[in-house]
Amino acid sequence: MNIELITFFIFSTLLIFTCIKVITSSNPVLSAINLVFSFFLSAVLWLLLGAEFLSIILILVYVGAVMVLFLFVVMMLDINIAKKTAAYIKYLPLGIAVFIAFNILIIYFFINTFENIDYNAVKNIEIISDSNTQNLGYLLFTKYIIEFEIAGLILLLGIISAIVLTYRKNPKNKYQNPTKQISASKKDRLKIITDLKE
């Protein structure tokens, strides 16, 4: 057994364990933390596959930014001990339905893909350097430029729509105007009262 296989087994076991913890722990913050760990562990698995760029980006984007915001929101909620049993029974039929649907999809995908897979698709990629990142960047900006740009546009749309959905101008809001504050001078704030008797 080589060291890569041992690492794979350790990390994938941990990954499954943390994934189960995500859905079973009663505390939403603990679930979120376990989700962070599972992202981290799957990043290690990607690293084992030699996808260094993707695995580090997974940590940077998902662990470093998305999950921080997630935790941020979850921590604000005051539902430390969720009504566990009641929720389980209530959502059990839906859960089973989703589980079966996903399994059908995965099995369908596996049967179809492994039969008609084009093994040359990977080989046809032009490799320009040893660096995984450089290769990926080259591909993204030449062969897949349109897909890349579309993905960027969709993300931009997401940003804009999130702002549009949440932005409400409240007239009662006591908003401070920073430019006005910065431009305040001594003359605006300070009034020297001279003694009237003199």
Partner: peptide, 21 residues
């Protein structure tokens, strides 16, 4: 390592967890 800069960016983004938790 090849992706040293990315590695640094990824790890410095992790220290926020200590503060939040």
């Amino acid at each position: 390592i090849n992706a040293g800069l990315l590695f640094i960016l990824a790890l410095t983004s992790l220290s926020v967890y200590g503060v939040i938790l």
